[in-house]
């Protein structure tokens, strides 16, 4: 009963947001520029949330997320452009392929810890990129021309799905296992939690949604090239998660939204953009190293007020 109630609340709010934006688009209030920013925001949210499950929930430090995004982008582009499949089938293919890549990368590397894991995932992401660079079927360095198919609807459904699955995962038995690993891997192991299994599951889910985001990405920007998915892209995603707060889903979402806007705004100041960006990064780390939200969710802020009323 209660579970379904929360589920319906979620769905209704998603629908409300969707309808408002859709009406604004059809009404012409939101021109292509803002639609484009919104789609990008959705892609960034998906990427941030899919990395959040790896870093924030399971505590595994991966800085190679762009690699899985690349797999999703390329496989879905092959599906639509070369095989002529419908867009949503292509998105599923991209996500599954990325999930498979996540599994392949995750099984050997997740035995590593901390910085070593970080560098290994970075290495894998670069290898994935170099592989695409050397395959002529996908255009090599020149890249693949992709027809624009992404709409606000696809992007928003992607975000809803990503948040739904990952929030659900977090609150499931699996999620609690993953959080236990984040807090203390050795203790978790001693408690009988199969740490490798939970880590690989979380990593694969993260890769699946990164792949989905990649598919939406590739069909929004007309062309994909291997250089797009270099390690700077991975760092971008990492920054969303870290700035938002490690372990906070809403934090990742807010940071992704915030930085998308900042990035769009700062494109007017090309020379200083990266300087401001890096300064913000350093200052946040120095003065609030847990990120903006810490491990708190945005709902914690409302909880005090609501506590009495909603305790039915």
């Amino acid at each position: 009963m209660k579970k379904s109630k929360a589920f319906w609340v979620y769905i209704i709010f998603a629908l409300v947001i969707y309808t408002i934006v859709q009406v604004m688009i059809s009404g012409g209030t939101l021109d292509l520029y803002y639609q484009n920013i919104l789609i990008q925001m959705c892609i960034n949210i998906m990427l941030a949330v899919s990395l959040h499950i790896v870093i924030g929930i399971t505590g595994q430090f991966s800085i190679g997320h762009a690699g899985f995004m690349a797999v999703g982008a390329y496989f879905s582009a092959i599906a639509t452009m070369n095989l002529g499949l419908p867009f949503f089938v292509a998105l599923i293919i991209g996500a599954v392929a990325a999930g498979f890549a996540g599994l392949l990368v995750g099984i050997p590397t997740l035995r590593l810890k901390g910085d070593y894991l970080a560098i290994a995932t970075l290495g894998f992401a670069e290898i994935i990129r170099i592989v695409f660079l050397n395959i002529d079927y996908v255009g090599g360095a020149a890249g693949m021309v992709v027809t624009n198919m992404t709409t606000w609807t696809f992007a928003f459904v992607g975000v809803v799905l990503t948040i739904f699955v990952i929030a659900n995962f977090t609150n499931s038995r699996h999620g609690r296992g993953a959080i236990a690993i984040r807090e203390d891997e050795i203790a978790a192991d001693a408690m009988g939690i199969n740490t490798t299994y939970y880590k690989v599951v979380a990593f694969t889910i993260g890769a699946i949604f990164a792949g989905l985001a990649g598919g939406i990405y590739s069909h929004n920007f007309f062309i994909i090239q291997p250089t797009t998915f270099n390690f700077l892209k991975s760092f971008d995603i990492l920054i969303y998660v870290v700035l938002g707060g490690l372990g906070s889903l809403s934090g990742s979402v807010i940071a992704a939204i915030f930085l998308t806007i900042v990035s769009a705004y700062l494109s007017n100041f090309p020379e200083t953009r990266m300087i401001i960006y890096s300064l913000v990064l350093i200052l946040v780390m120095l003065y609030r190293p847990t990120g903006l939200m810490g491990t708190k969710e945005i709902t914690h802020l409302f909880k005090f007020g609501k506590k009495g009323g909603s305790k039915v």
Binding site: I55, V242, L246, M285, L286
Partner: peptide, 8 residues
């Protein structure tokens, strides 16, 4: 945390 240091 190590992550904070690496990000910095």
């Amino acid at each position: 945390t190590r992550i904070a240091a690496l990000i910095t």
